[in-house]
Amino acid sequence: MTLRADPAPAAATRVPRFGPAQRRVHRATALLMGVCVVTAACLYVPQLAELVGRRDLVVRIHEWAGLALPVPVLAGLASRAFRADLGRLNRFGAHDRRWLRAALRRDKRREARPAGKFNAGQKVYASWVAGATLVMLGTGLLMWFTHLTPIQWRTSATFVHDWLALTLGIVLAGHIGMALGDPEARHGMRTGWVSEDWADREHPLWRR
């Protein structure tokens, strides 16, 4: 008598989440933001500044990476799918308010946190980063073209730029930490596909 092996479990059903445009914009933006953060650290942390040296080169890389930050998003506007996702990020409904209340209460029940393609936390994060990036760009330009503005403007711009950069670094660290804790979300951003179970659990309104 021969023993028959049990059949292998079926692979999880995958559903499309992000197209090529969304993934490319995310990667390009993440790369430019990473360059800005690393070069800023090299400019403001004495130990890193001594280790890297070549301050003028670091400043130029920081300036041009910051100036290029809006470019991936602007290029992505050519994609209908990317524009549709921007529209979803820009809409805040009753279910998003429920999600935020549950998050503040640390209520992790699935039914307490209804979410569409993007949950309320992702929408708040995206809006905050977009606004912070524009402020950083504006204050950075004031600091770059010093001969065009009075000293008071440059001093205020430097203060806002420096403290907002620190806050942005903390927020980005939180974003990376959340991503590291969710392998399926990273898989979705890397390949464009997520498991049906994950979509039903994390974004039930989107799956419907």
Rank of each mutant, 00 (worst) to 15 (best):
M1K: 13
R4E: 08
R4A: 09
D6V: 13
D6E: 12
P7T: 04
P7W: 10
P9D: 05
A11E: 09
A12C: 09
V15C: 12
P16N: 12
G19Q: 05
G19R: 06
P20K: 13
A21T: 07
Q22T: 12
Q22P: 00
R24F: 12
V25N: 02
H26D: 01
A28L: 15
T29G: 15
G34A: 06
V38H: 10
C42T: 06
C42I: 06
Y44H: 15
P46L: 13
Q47D: 04
L48E: 01
A49Y: 00
E50V: 13
L51A: 14
L51K: 03
V52S: 01
R54C: 02
R55V: 08
R55I: 07
D56T: 07
V58S: 03
V59K: 10
V59Q: 03
V59N: 02
R60L: 11
H62A: 12
E63S: 15
E63G: 12
W64I: 14
V71K: 11
P72L: 10
P72V: 12
V73M: 09
A78W: 15
R80I: 05
A84W: 12
D85C: 07
L89E: 01
L89K: 04
N90H: 07
F92R: 01
G93F: 00
G93P: 00
H95M: 05
D96A: 10
R98L: 14
L100K: 03
L100E: 01
R101E: 04
R106I: 06
R109L: 10
R110S: 04
E111Y: 02
P114Y: 13
F118D: 01
N119P: 02
A120Y: 00
G121M: 14
V124G: 03
V124F: 13
G131A: 06
T133Y: 03
L134A: 13
L134S: 05
M136V: 08
M136D: 05
L137S: 05
G138I: 09
L141R: 08
L142F: 14
M143Q: 10
F145I: 05
T146R: 15
I151F: 11
I151G: 04
I151C: 02
Q152R: 12
W153M: 09
W153V: 13
S156M: 11
T158G: 14
T158W: 08
F159M: 03
H161D: 07
D162E: 09
A165V: 03
T167Q: 13
T167G: 15
V171M: 11
A173F: 11
A173S: 05
G174K: 03
I176D: 02
M178F: 13
A179N: 04
R186H: 04
G188W: 00
G188R: 00
T191E: 00
W193H: 04
D197C: 14
D200L: 15
R201E: 13
E202P: 02
H203I: 05
H203M: 09
P204E: 09
P204A: 15
W206T: 04
W206Y: 15
R207K: 13
R208E: 06
R208M: 02
